[in-house]
């Protein structure tokens, strides 16, 4: 049984409860009063992909629309500008809830596969946990080539002037492509992350038990 199916079974389609227990800041969802200020405050102006604004996502959670919410690309569109948090009359940490939902969907493996923010987030995370340092060159290259070789070359050519400028200014080291710089205690970083994950699981278990 997939992680997704396991959770669906566990919460017997009480999706709000699932969100409250499993999603970071999910316990705030119930406090929304549907005023719409978050949605109206979003500077992305709901570009394609923003199917559901935050307050609607919250209502969908309450209405038990599990599948629709978790597979939605909407949460991935958040740019963390915090306008919604600042204005929310109920002080909901909307930005964090959006990220929490995105993260949860990702963990369950139901997040939209081709969503660019998600791809970037994955690339970024994998890039930085490996060595404890962000390798910007590898990150950019990875991003350029995520849609295939020819598209990657096209992307690279489009950005070549920027790259040359950076090279000239000694802000880009081509040798970073091979290994690159690392932090002093790579194992320590990995241990830290492992511990963090354990703590997170424990917290969630406690929350579920409560």
């Amino acid at each position: 049984m997939s992680a997704n199916a396991q959770m669906a079974t566990k919460y017997k389609n009480n999706f709000l409860k699932e969100v409250e227990e499993q999603v970071e800041m999910g316990e705030w969802v119930k406090m929304c009063m549907q005023c719409g200020v978050c949605s109206g405050s979003c500077p992305t102006n709901f570009h394609p992909g923003w199917e559901h604004p935050p307050q609607e996502i919250f209502m969908m959670i309450r209405a038990g629309k599990r599948e629709e919410v978790l597979t939605s690309p909407s949460m991935w569109m958040c740019t963390s500008c915090y306008n919604c948090i600042v204005r929310c009359p109920r002080k909901l940490p909307i930005t964090h809830i959006m990220h929490g939902l995105a993260n949860y969907a990702h963990r369950l493996g139901v997040a939209p596969k081709m969503q660019p923010t998600r791809s970037f987030a994955k690339l970024f995370w994998n890039n930085c946990v490996k060595t404890g340092r962000v390798n910007e060159l590898k990150l950019s290259v990875g991003l350029y080539f995520k849609d295939g070789l020819s598209q990657g070359i096209r992307n690279g050519m489009a950005m070549k002037d920027v790259a040359l400028g950076l090279l000239k200014a000694k802000r880009l080291n081509p040798f970073e492509l091979f290994g690159g710089h690392k932090c002093k205690d790579q194992n320590g970083i990995h241990a830290m992350l492992k511990k963090a994950r354990e703590l997170e699981e424990k917290r969630k278990a406690l929350k579920a038990a409560a």
Partner: peptide, 20 residues
């Protein structure tokens, strides 16, 4: 809807209500 913000149409002096 609770209006999220108001902007100004400089030419007319009209306030513009933005929201959902």
């Amino acid at each position: 809807s609770k209006v999220a913000r108001i902007s100004l149409n400089e030419a007319t002096g009209n306030p513009i209500c933005h929201g959902v």
